[in-house]
Structures are given as structure tokens and as C-alpha cells.
């Protein structure tokens, strides 16, 4: 369930370089410098060009994973984002210990990302339309879901129902956070119940799946949207590819568990390029009359 997803780009073990959120040059999954190599096509491209293209490779359209703040900056109208529940942190209910104490792991993640937890929630405007926006940060312990993520997502969805504004959740997660054991698993039930409540209230719920949306998050609030958008090439799936290969005793075909694969099988409405996300979200909000 909470399998860590290894990618060619980035592993949660190695902290990304420090942030300078002011200038908008957020962390991307490549070493900081003037030039950067695209993990997909291998082309050496000018870092600035990548950033200007919203962290999409100008050569091959590879959508880099981006930190939550960078995403918010890209999606929300300038200066409109008002965060809530900003400083919630886990109380480490299991007193979990591995190579690192869980609390220590959290502290490291906080230092490298500058976030208190793996999701940032708040009110914002997208092209002038008010929304509740929740964005997961793939660099914070792979945006795994523990008690805090579950609470913040639930609170965001509840607030959307209460205030009758659409909620946009940008998902990216390796699944439930193993270090919180069952406390993390039950967040799946908690967030799903919140979506049911929003649905009863007639609210609009847009999910934007980004790389990677997997396991416990894929099997809860990420799969319950009224509208499912996804960024091209994102990994979207439930079980880890290695686990599946182990079950079926065969290699998986290329593109298995990609957003395109999920679209083909009927679980995603639209695949949307990062540069069109704002427009698409605004259009859907208008069509739903919210």
C-alpha cells in the first residue's frame, strides 16, 4: 500500500536542493544549476527555460514533479491564496522507529521542503473563480497520507461543502504513510466520507492527478472526483509495479499505470497539459454553474 515509488527522477531519500520560493524557482527533481538534464529525454536544457515552461521539458513535454508552493503559484491567481491549517503536524501516534525516528524524518522533510506537511490547503481564486485548493507536495515523504494529510483534505472538502465553492485537489502521493500504520489507513475512509458529504451538498469536486497518484490516495479521495483531470505521463495506479510483476510473473508493458492508460480504461476524464490547467479548471467550474 505505502510502497515508495522509485522513479528515474527523484527518490524521497535524497533531499532536493534548498528552496528560494521568493523568486519562484522552486525545487525540481534535478540538481540546481544553469543547465539541467531532462530525466525523460536526456536533453540538456536551460534551467530557466524549463521554469518558464512551468517546469515542463521544452524538448519532450516531460512534466517535472513540482513542490506544492510552485503548483499553487502556477494555478492560483496572483496573491489570492489564503492558507488554512498551515501548521498541523503529526503527534507520531505509533512512536515509529526505523533507521530514523519518524519525528526526525518529519523534521528533515520539513527542512528540505519548507512545508509543515505533505499537503497545502487554502482558499484561492482561479481565473477569478473562488475555489478551495489542496495541493500535495511529492517531495514531502512522497506526499504520503498520514493523519495530517487526511485531516487537511477532509477539512478542505468540508469547507467547500459549507461555503458552496468548488474544491480542486491536486494529488500526488505514494499512498498511505506507513510510519503512521492504521492511523494513516483510516484517513482513506475519513476523506471518502467527506467527499460523500460534499456530494450530498451538491458541491463540485475536481481532482487533478499528477505524478505519482497511487495506492491509498488513488484508492480514496483521488478517485472520487466529479471530474478527473490528469497531467500527461503521470503515474496513476493502485499497487506498485514491482508487486504486480511479482504477482503475474511477467514484465508490465511500457505505459502501464500511466494517466493515458487510465484514460483509456475509463477512469480519467481529460488529460490536460500543465499550461492549460487553469483554463480547463475555470471552464469546468463555469459549466457546473458553481
Amino acid at each position: 500500500m505505502a510502497e515508495e515509488i522509485s522513479t528515474p527522477a527523484k527518490d524521497s531519500e535524497t533531499p532536493p536542493p534548498a528552496v528560494t520560493t521568493e523568486s519562484g524557482s522552486g525545487r525540481v527533481d534535478v540538481p540546481k544549476g544553469l543547465w539541467t538534464q531532462c530525466p525523460k529525454c536526456g536533453a540538456t536544457v536551460y534551467q530557466k527555460a524549463v521554469e518558464e515552461a512551468l517546469h515542463v521539458c521544452p524538448e519532450c513535454d516531460y512534466h517535472h514533479r513540482i513542490p506544492a508552493r510552485t503548483r499553487i503559484k502556477q494555478l492560483a491567481d496572483d496573491g489570492t491564496f489564503e492558507e488554512f491549517l498551515a501548521d498541523l503536524t503529526t503527534t507520531d501516534p505509533l512512536k515509529f522507529e526505523e533507521r530514523l525516528k519518524y519525528k526526525e524524518r518529519i523534521r528533515q522533510a520539513q527542512q528540505t521542503t519548507g512545508e509543515s506537511e505533505a499537503v497545502v490547503v487554502g482558499k484561492a481564486f482561479i481565473r477569478g473563480r473562488p475555489v478551495i485548493l489542496a495541493v500535495m507536495d511529492p517531495f514531502f515523504i512522497m506526499a504520503s497520507m498520514g493523519a495530517v494529510v487526511g485531516e487537511k483534505i477532509t477539512a478542505a472538502i468540508e469547507r467547500a461543502a459549507d461555503e458552496n465553492v468548488p474544491v480542486v485537489v491536486v494529488t500526488a502521493s505514494g499512498g498511505a504513510r506507513m510510519q503512521e500504520g492504521m492511523v494513516s489507513l483510516v484517513q482513506m475512509a475519513k476523506t471518502s466520507a467527506a467527499v460523500a458529504r460534499l456530494d450530498e451538498a451538491g458541491g463540485l469536486y475536481i481532482v487533478v492527478m499528477t505524478d505519482p497518484t497511487t495506492a491509498g490516495v488513488a484508492a480514496s479521495f483521488a478517485s472520487l472526483g466529479d471530474i478527473h483531470l490528469a497531467e500527461p505521463g503521470s503515474m496513476v495506479g493502485f499497487a506498485g509495479p514491482r508487486v504486480i510483476e511479482n504477482t503475474i510473473k511477467a514484465k508490465l508493458p511500457a505505459g502501464f499505470q500511466s494517466a493515458e492508460f487510465m484514460l483509456e480504461h475509463g477512469f480519467i476524464d481529460r488529460i490536460v497539459h500543465r499550461s492549460s490547467l487553469r483554463t480547463e479548471i475555470a471552464r469546468i467550474i463555469d459549466y457546473s454553474g458553481k
Binding site: 460523500a196 484508492a219 480514496s220 493502485f238 499497487a239 508487486v243 480504461h265
Partner: peptide, 27 residues
């Protein structure tokens, strides 16, 4: 031990099936 971790389960939307069940059971 868990939902079936196979390719067919993924194709037919195991994540969505579980999510929908939780949502519907809550109400």
C-alpha cells in the same frame, strides 16, 4: 491480505472500486 495486486485489477480500476465503496458505505 489486501486487494489483488495484478494487472487486470489495475485495468478495471481497483483503486476507484475501493474508493467508491468507502464513500457509499459512509452514507
Amino acid at each position: 491480505q489486501g486487494a489483488f495486486p495484478g494487472d487486470k485489477a489495475e485495468e478495471r480500476g481497483i483503486a476507484q472500486a475501493i474508493a467508491v465503496n468507502m464513500m457509499e458505505m459512509s452514507r
